[in-house]
Amino acid sequence: MRRTVSTGPIAFDATLWDEPTTGIGLYTRCLAGALEAQGVRLEKLGARDSGDHPRGSGSRTAWTLARLPRVLERSKPPLYHALGNFNLPLIRVSGTAYVLTVLDLIPLIMPDTVSAKFRWQFRLWLSRSLLLADRVVCISERTRQDLLERFPEAESRAVVVPIGVDHVHAPVLDATSEDFLRALSLPKDYVLYAGSLDVRKNVDLVLDAMERLRAQGRPASLVLAGQSWFGSGRVESRIARLRAEGHDIRPLGYQAEPVFYELMRRAAVFVFPSRYEGFGLPPLEAMRLGTPAIVSTAGSLPEVCGDAAPAVRPDDAEGLAEAIHRLLRSPREREAFAVKGQARAAQFTWERTAEQTLAVYEDVLRR
């Protein structure tokens, strides 16, 4: 059922709209499209080049702190929704309610996985934003609990609105992409890890499992699709060493969406043993494409994946190796998890995310 707020357009944080896709950028674009499909009018503020009031070449931080309050003062929107974990204006704009989305608290939970500068920016700006926010949208119950452990004063304003995964479809490949994939000569049954190579994602555990499998005479082929990130140099060096030792490990770096999702769709098994996730979208994307996923027991992954994905402790390399081997040798078990995974992923739609976000807007504006 289409619903809409009865006031003027919602001011919507678009500071990552024109940037290379990150989790927040994907959330921004998918949520905007789903809200507009519900009839909500949005003013998209602070994109680099597009939308309303583009910021130009300036930084997102400078835009939010210096220019955004003046834009809100002039346009007087009923509500401003910030989407980047902590990035509300530092001052209250009269007549405008504030909603903040918190996707995760990684800089506070795993401080060594980000730079010291970003860690302090996150902590201080989030503290201020929580003082001003009329509602805090958390994308999982795990994120909500992590937030309340550190900021219990936000309990009455923090609500859970899961994100969607139905932006993922079996890709249509152009000739260049087809040629690229053909040139890779990937084996029929390969294991895929997709995501950044930072410490939090626990790629080392995947490499540990590959070493164990080869030592046991059960080698597997591993494909890695993801960009370098803060602290990824050591993992990249280890990958190079293992390749030199004869392991079939193929680091492909960042890939555009069609190739990325086709690699995911073709994989026999998707592995994602992250040490912490505020939601954990990649395994849900794989599940939607019919690829069985193996995840860790950490963060929100059990909450999101339920019993549709085998789970191992984030320090259990032997358990991960055994789970990989079990699925690789059993097409029947892979098919069973593929069916369960698709059913699980079907529960997470952007329409549902938009409806629940809109309910937050309406509740704030009624007060």
Rank of each mutant, 00 (worst) to 15 (best):
F348A: 03
Q227L: 05
F272T: 04
L124G: 01
F270D: 02
A170Y: 01
V93K: 12
L130T: 10
D189G: 08
D49S: 15
L289G: 09
M1T: 06
R275K: 13
F86L: 05
D316N: 04
D174C: 02
A267L: 05
G278Q: 02
D315R: 13
A244W: 10
N202T: 03
E141T: 03
P283L: 13
S296N: 02
I10Y: 01
L358C: 05
R367A: 14
S127D: 08
A37V: 02
A225F: 00
T291N: 04
R150S: 10
F12L: 03
P69I: 11
P162L: 10
Q121G: 06
D104F: 11
F151R: 08
L31R: 14
P89S: 05
S140A: 09
S221V: 00
F180L: 05
M210S: 05
R265H: 11
L79W: 06
R48K: 11
R3Q: 13
Q121I: 09
P171F: 02
I10H: 03
L289T: 10
H81Q: 07
T349C: 09
M287K: 02
A293H: 08
R67P: 07
P171V: 06
L72T: 07
G51W: 08
L108E: 15
R2Q: 15
L284K: 06
G341V: 08
R326I: 04
A62D: 05
L105D: 09
F12I: 05
E318V: 14
T4F: 12
L205K: 01
M110N: 12
R366F: 13
I24H: 04
V161R: 09
T353K: 07
S127H: 07
R70P: 04
V102Q: 06
T61F: 04
Y80P: 10
E318S: 13
L68A: 08
